[in-house]
Design a binder for these strands. Structure first.
Lengths: 252, 252
DNA sequence: ACATAGCATTTCGTATACCAGACACGCAGC
DNA sequence: GCTGCGTGTCTGGTATACGAAATGCTATGT
């Protein structure tokens, strides 16, 4: 009989102020949905310092991290601004995502257990129940969750890390509702086909389907994502943007 | 006659101490070839502070960046260590690289001009002249340069950024010489085929070739990259490692 | 009224001082 | 000889103070 394994927690490590601030700010930035409001959003170190109850030092280090992730932009002696990605950047990110996820899907076809693949069906069903028209937020989250699940099955940490960073910025197109031309339904069918290919262990096919699925989104944004660049113009009045949205702008 | 354009430099922006330190340290870490020496390499904030002539603050911020890039590891109240990637991590990185580059190659087939593709031949030729056995360093650099060139042709900045970060860590396997089983020659043939596919604008084929080429490297490391994990054990004496290298260890 | 020079303010960048955890060493007790 | 405890030192984490650049305001002169 082997001796009982003693596994202990790493204790805290990582609970430093810097990391706490980093997580908080990241979450806050993601939640605040900058893409709903035109005009630049500016952060103030001192204000944050008072707000979070820590000195500027850990805050600056956290902001340094967020800058590298592309969430904020530090302009010396000018201010710290939350970054808004351009349409082109978003499309490039989706393309990179497509590359990484299709590779992950190929790996998943080799490595995932049958049980693992079963969990995809669970996610798929819960996804199916969502009415995409209302609750875009939850629909989008569930969608991302599905993709994350597949990538997890690849058992390649790097792919997870890299795509996670990309997914963060996908909040920009969350509003690209599926209403338009049955994108929701088609998307669902494609998800289903991918799972089936995985079940058949057809890595080649699964990879191709995953790539085409995500590249499809890229093309969709290419066609209907112009609003992303409008928002960059601070001159645009909020009302104008809202009107444009009401016109039934697409999305994901 | 149009008025003379007045274009001024952004002046300094980015010349902050933090960024300078960041670049210096990054360069230093990459150059020092940690994979040649077993045992952990530790950095000392105060020492660096004296060495570079700036205070600890910008140094810490630079180190924060390097940590996120995976070059160093900050252990609270323990020390700062240069990170050595494990064999598994290296392989995962190569896989991610394969994913991104194959996608880039597909894009290049659509977007690159004939002239652009011509430059690939230039790189290819200068690469061909290198004797891989001696001068592993330069051979490896030229190899990376070729891949970077292709990715550049995709005109997708994100792909460049992401792969650049991955390439940094490829220095770990630089020593995996090509001597073994004609890898150098085969690699060259594959490069040539990729360029030809690009010339024919066969994106599908170019993508596949690029992927298989790089995944081939991953498989190669899988077979011959065990030394990467040996190095992590500080107990291993340097002499032992060097002996192992002399045995004709593979690489890239 | 308007342009401008000077000053005050704001904001980030950097330096410095202090804090607390982790380790190493040495001594005491068994 | 081993174990446990305590102290001193080293190290990174945090707070605070200072500095310089950019901006905005105001007063002044025309």
């Amino acid at each position: 009989m082997p001796p009982p394994e003693l596994t202990v927690q790493p204790l805290d490590s990582g609970a430093t102020f810097r990391n706490q601030v980093y997580r908080r700010l990241k979450q806050a930035i993601i939640q605040m949905d900058i893409y709903d409001h035109p005009g630049d959003v500016r952060l103030d170190e001192r204000q944050l310092s008072g707000l979070l109850g820590v000195s500027r030092t850990p805050i600056r280090e956290a902001l340094t991290l967020l800058e590298q992730e592309g969430l904020v932009r530090l302009e010396p002696r000018r201010g710290i601004y939350i970054v808004r990605k351009t349409k082109t950047e978003i499309i490039e990110m989706i393309i990179a995502w497509a590359a990484l996820e299709s590779m992950a899907t190929r790996l998943a076809a080799e490595r995932a257990t049958a049980e693992d693949i079963g969990t995809l069906w669970d996610i798929f069903r819960s996804f199916e129940e969502q009415a995409p028209s209302d609750n875009i937020q939850e629909y989008s989250d569930a969608n991302i969750e599905f993709h994350k699940a597949i990538i997890r099955l690849s058992r390649a940490r790097i792919l997870e890390t890299l795509t996670d960073n990309l997914f963060i910025h996908m909040r920009a197109i969350r509003k690209l509702s599926i209403r338009q031309d049955n994108r929701a339904e088609q998307s669902m069918h494609e998800h289903r086909d991918i799972i089936r290919a995985l079940e058949r262990r057809d890595g080649e096919l699964a990879e191709r389907l995953a790539r085409e699925h995500t590249l499809g989104l890229a093309a969709h944004v290419e066609r209907h994502g112009d609003f992303l660049d409008w928002l960059r113009l601070a001159e645009v009045r909020s009302a104008d943007v809202k009107a444009a949205f009401k016109d039934g702008l697409p999305l994901m």
